[in-house]
């Protein structure tokens, strides 16, 4: 391993966040390279001092009254019967994101049903073979699902490959 490559990995090495295989390779280099060792020690030291300073810094805290009021607000009214009561009880049904998820799932199903129908004129005339989806290079290789937050109007698109493995997201 070169010094240049090691420096790239150094921020992760400094927090012991490299995998075991890379850690071994990196340690071997560091033990034989005083310049990299010094750089690593300096980085570790700086990060640990930064963390300590962050811990010492005062962060906001709840006043007792504020905390109690929050707990009363959380537990009050809708609390007793948990989810069921709220689901049938009136104006607040489910959290808004749950509705958005349901909507997203619905859109997803529609997208899937469209994609999985394949290019043929219809199942009665030319049913797709069951393994058609696994064909490489076909349009169905990527499935996307769009979620829209009703509260903020923001959208997020999730991508899945043909095996329904999560491939990423786009905001």
């Amino acid at each position: 391993m070169t010094c240049r490559k090691l420096r790239k990995l150094m921020p992760l090495l400094a927090g012991d966040d490299l995998g075991p295989r890379r850690t071994r390779a990196v340690r071997a280099h560091v033990s034989a390279c005083p310049a990299c060792l010094r750089e690593l020690e300096e980085l570790r030291e700086a990060l640990s001092r930064f963390k300590a300073a962050a811990k010492d810094e005062s962060v906001p805290d709840w006043s007792e009254g504020e905390w109690k009021a929050l707990m009363v607000r959380a537990a009050g009214g809708t609390a007793r019967d948990g989810e069921k009561k709220r689901a049938w009880g009136g104006h607040v049904l489910l959290p808004r994101w749950a509705a958005a998820s349901a909507l997203g799932a619905l859109i997803g199903l529609v997208v899937l049903s469209v994609l999985f129908r394949g290019p043929g004129p219809g199942p009665a005339e030319r049913p797709d073979p069951p393994l058609a989806l696994a064909d490489a290079g076909r349009a169905q290789d990527v499935v996307s699902m769009t979620m829209v937050s009703q509260e903020t109007g923001l959208q997020i698109v999730w991508f899945f490959d043909k095996n329904f493995d999560y491939k990423g997201e786009q905001e």
Binding site: K8, P11, A14, G15, D17, E45, A46, L47, R49, F50
Partner: peptide, 23 residues
């Protein structure tokens, strides 16, 4: 995480030289 630690390191160099002292 890697890029964040790199930027924090730069910020320490720039703004908190005292955090680098005492070694």
């Amino acid at each position: 995480l890697s890029s964040a630690r790199r930027k924090i390191r730069e910020a320490i160099r720039r703004d908190f030289p005292h955090l680098e002292e005492g070694r």
